[in-house]
Design a binder for these strands. Structure first.
Lengths: 147, 147
DNA sequence: CTGAGTGCAAACGGTTTGCATTAAT
DNA sequence: ATTAATGCAAACCGTTTGCACTCAG
């Protein structure tokens, strides 16, 4: 797990300064079990820091990424960040389209994928998108169907 | 298959005008078995059309996408386009990191993926990245190792 | 007190738009 | 001749940079 204190101490151990804003950012991600866009972060932080600027958000997101605290992923609608996975083993994710919550999938399809032997596999991506329990029930209200 | 003529006739059947540039664009994609970025397309087309502008490239990429001729995918390094898959059945792709060539994978991991029953799956993404035969041998030259 | 962190403004790259010109129908 | 397609310029959005000011150490 990545607690705020863990993140903060990792910052200071690297000679980085622990500002109020960075502590809040650490808290935001340690409280969030999913992906956040820079805009999400900006809007959240903006509640607390009125003069907040986008560039500081970006700078600190990158700082936390370089610290290994956050990981960055590209989606159809742009870049998003989440806490770096605590799972030690290789895994994939279920991702909620509504709230961005993620849930690990232990199964890795690569083992069962037949690849031509003249193709050298370097990496792969397996992501399952849908609606988590909470968001799923909201959606039901609008479009109930036998799908 | 998507031949130039098929694409062109689909354009005119929709009331779109078949310009020289659009025909060349159609040919580019029907000759390419992989992904191209807008920049790739611009550079290729620029060889033939000196006064070419980026906005026309974008406009025509979008036209072909709306026609169903091209499909657009977001990668780490930005948006890319390829001919819409001719495969009728659901499938995934091997993608060459060097040349963008794609190759269908029939195996779909979803069938074997255990998903919590309170999570409603909507879609999934499975992509395998690496080097195709041609690009793989180039790479060998630089970094030969027992990997 | 010193240098890292911040906000501001401005630059940047990729993409989109408005408009006058050109060309396919 | 009509109207869509093009090129140009400028707008736009997300992201990055330079700089002066501020504040954590």
């Amino acid at each position: 797990m990545h607690t705020v204190e863990e993140i903060v101490s990792r910052m200071s151990s690297q000679g980085l300064r622990v500002t109020d804003q960075r502590r809040t950012l650490a808290k935001l991600f340690s409280d969030t079990s999913g992906y956040l866009s820079p805009k999400d972060v900006y809007e959240f932080m903006g509640k607390t820091y009125s003069g907040l600027s986008f560039d500081t958000v970006y700078r600190n997101l990158r700082v936390l990424e370089e610290l290994g605290v956050l990981e960055q992923v590209m989606f159809e609608d742009g870049v998003k960040f989440k806490l770096h996975c605590s799972e030690h083993h290789h895994h994939h994710h279920l991702i909620c389209l509504q709230c961005g919550l993620t849930h690990p999938i232990v199964f890795c399809p690569m083992e069962q994928t037949a690849v031509p032997d003249d193709f050298k596999v370097v990496k792969h991506k397996f992501e399952v998108f849908g609606y988590c329990k909470a968001c799923g029930s909201e959606v039901e209200v609008k479009g109930e169907s036998g799908l």
